[in-house]
Measured scan of single mutants.
Amino acid sequence: MSIQHFRVALIPFFAAFCLPVFAHPETLVKVKDAEDQLGARVGYIELDLNSGKILESFRPEERFPMMSTFKVLLCGAVLSRVDAGQEQLGRRIHYSQNDLVEYSPVTEKHLTDGMTVRELCSAAITMSDNTAANLLLTTIGGPKELTAFLHNMGDHVTRLDRWEPELNEAIPNDERDTTMPAAMATTLRKLLTGELLTLASRQQLIDWMEADKVAGPLLRSALPAGWFIADKSGAGERGSRGIIAALGPDGKPSRIVVIYTTGSQATMDERNRQIAEIGASLIKHW
């Protein structure tokens, strides 16, 4: 067993022997301040990774656009098919120029040779490549099948209805392509620590998230040296922004954090800054 596999296998073990965790309302004060600064709703939840206990939450059962955070769930569904012998990570998928959609920095470079399922998941999570996500959605049967996968996990809230990039439209009061912070946090925890996926697939999923290259201005910008984070960000229309993450000190994750916002007129930089400040408060009061 590799060191990384050992780390993920012992996530519940280490967490069980940690000192009790206590909620700190100071972080919620910052979440509410972010709402004021952005002029928009902000949803927040913080779960203990081992027990699933909610440590703090704000608007945990209000719907927010998922945006690209759905790509972690998508690759979880792909990995479940791999575990069941219905898919192979090494299978190569070929596609054409007509398949390319807006923001496809990886797939646009491989029109000639195609990409493997493993490479597509890596591109979808680490670079948020939209064509990679659409190609992977095709392998599982489309958005409705991802929703069905989530329902089978016990998540009857999260739903995907459309493809990239239309799913980022974020129309107010439109339930399409949305989740709730509580539902997303619980589902992410199941994917990373539950028995739904094999140990190898859980490790692969967290490795992809740990290698995320496009979430630097968010929670990662607030992390002290030595902290662990595996995350996936999302951005959408109407001032929408979000991030889902597993993080913790001492090089291992111990909490799940989900943050979503929508309806702001603020710039992307300002949305990023507010999420980073929430992260800084979380870490300060850990």
Rank of each mutant, 00 (worst) to 15 (best):
P25N: 04
L28A: 07
V29N: 15
K32T: 07
A34N: 12
A34E: 00
D36Q: 11
Q37T: 10
G39H: 12
A40M: 05
R41Y: 09
R41W: 14
R41P: 12
V42Q: 07
G43Y: 12
I45E: 07
I45L: 12
E46N: 04
S51I: 04
S57W: 14
S57L: 05
S57A: 05
E61I: 02
F64P: 05
P65W: 05
T69H: 09
K71I: 12
V72A: 03
G76K: 07
A77V: 12
V78K: 05
L79H: 05
S80D: 11
Q86Y: 08
Q86K: 11
Q88H: 10
G90C: 01
R91A: 07
R91E: 09
R92C: 11
R92S: 09
I93V: 01
H94G: 06
Q97S: 04
D99F: 09
L100A: 06
E102V: 00
E102A: 01
V106T: 12
V106F: 09
T107L: 05
T107H: 06
E108Y: 07
K109Y: 07
H110A: 03
H110P: 02
D113G: 07
G114S: 12
M115A: 08
T116P: 05
E119P: 03
C121A: 00
A123Q: 01
A123N: 02
A124V: 06
I125E: 05
D129H: 01
A132Y: 09
A133K: 00
L137P: 02
L137I: 06
T138N: 13
I140F: 12
I140E: 09
G141W: 00
P143L: 05
K144W: 02
E145G: 15
T147L: 05
F149L: 08
L150T: 03
H151Q: 07
M153F: 08
M153W: 09
G154V: 07
G154L: 04
H156W: 10
V157F: 14
T158I: 02
L160V: 00
R162Q: 00
R162T: 01
R162K: 00
E164N: 10
E164Y: 00
P165V: 00
E169L: 01
E169S: 08
P172H: 04
P172E: 03
P172W: 08
N173K: 11
N173G: 13
D174S: 01
E175P: 08
T178W: 14
M180V: 10
A182Y: 10
A182H: 08
A182W: 09
A183N: 00
A185F: 08
R189T: 15
L191T: 12
L191G: 13
L192Y: 13
T193N: 05
L199C: 03
S201G: 03
R202D: 02
Q203Y: 02
Q203N: 11
Q204K: 14
E210R: 12
A211Y: 13
D212Y: 11
P217I: 12
L218W: 15
P224R: 05
P224D: 08
A225W: 09
A225Y: 02
W227N: 08
F228M: 15
A230W: 13
D231Q: 15
S233C: 15
S233E: 15
G234Y: 13
A235V: 14
A235C: 12
G236P: 15
G239S: 00
S240Y: 15
I244D: 11
A245F: 13
A245C: 11
A245S: 12
A246T: 09
D250Q: 13
I259K: 14
I259L: 12
Y260Q: 12
S264W: 03
Q265S: 11
M268E: 15
M268A: 15
D269M: 12
D269C: 13
Q274F: 09
G279P: 13
A280S: 11
S281H: 12
K284F: 09
H285G: 01
H285W: 02
